[in-house]
Design a protein around this nucleic acid. Sequence first.
DNA 1: ATTGCCGGGGT
DNA 2: ACCCCGGCAAT
Length: 321
Amino acid sequence: MLRVLDVGLERCLALHSAYIPVPRHRKLSGKAGIDEVMAAAVLTSLSTSPLVLGHPPAAPAPEPGGDVWKEAPAMSSSCSSSSNTSGDWSWDPPSDRSTPSTPSPPLSSHVPSAFLPTPLPDEGPDEPDGTHFIFGEPIPRKRKNSTKVMFKCLWKSCGKVLSSSSGMQKHIRTVHLGRKADLEQSDGEEDFYYTELDVDVDSLTDGLSSLTPVSPTSSVPPAFPGPEAPALPNPDPVLGVPPTPPGLCHVHTDHAYQGCPAPPQPPVPPAAPALPPPKPPSMPRRPRGEAKKCRKVYGMENRELWCTACRWKKACQRFLD
DNA sequence: ATTGCCGGGGT
DNA sequence: ACCCCGGCAAT
């Protein structure tokens, strides 16, 4: 017993002494100011130019004054936890905790639900046709222009459109699924019954008016935007596919990584009066993994304890969703 | 503001 | 291949 502790302590000390000289850690607490915003803006605008036309920003040692690397007082606890021997140290919540609960509730039936496959850095539906490849304008990647994300209920004869996902979830939960509204326990099922669409702010009203009511019985032309969106006649995969609901592929059971290329077709069951088909399974979208990742678990202080992926700002490998 | 991580750069 | 970070979406 004592020996174990000893080892842990030793380990801890070693860790500390080893990491003191670490030179990085630029700024832990970023105080966001106008400066940063403006700088960001400038950088953004600069990024469009092919090369860095300013002064070389190469500055290997930006902080001559000294970095503020304060020891986290929480170290003690992590130390004790590191007493976990047996080869793989693996992550181990401090056993001191009176609560034996698991650090991240597995959420039995709740599959983490899929996630949005990055909303496609498209230009937005401003282009009259697909000719936004004027070389004169590189436009590396720009996201939101004048589009606004709306959420449309796909329930058979509802078609309600809200501006917030939470609101839509609530709507579906209460109105269609008949669940309690305030119950935070959303198992993600609502996700299946609404989709999000990029609405051009300009033609917002127009688009909405044609989007909202919709009679489900009348055959909805699968691939024709039809009346709405006169500005984007073809849903070409070239760049922008605004009306395509990205969160509707209930195909895979687990890692639905690639978005579904399926055409915009209402996934509404053909003849479902009010009963949702018992289908909570796949995850059409993943809002954000519930599991805490290395960063959250260990904190910035113990970055060395993160899995490599996390250290490299890649998808965490240790705490998979 | 924070967190997770894609895309891309440096070695 | 390894390592790191800018920047962004989602929260």
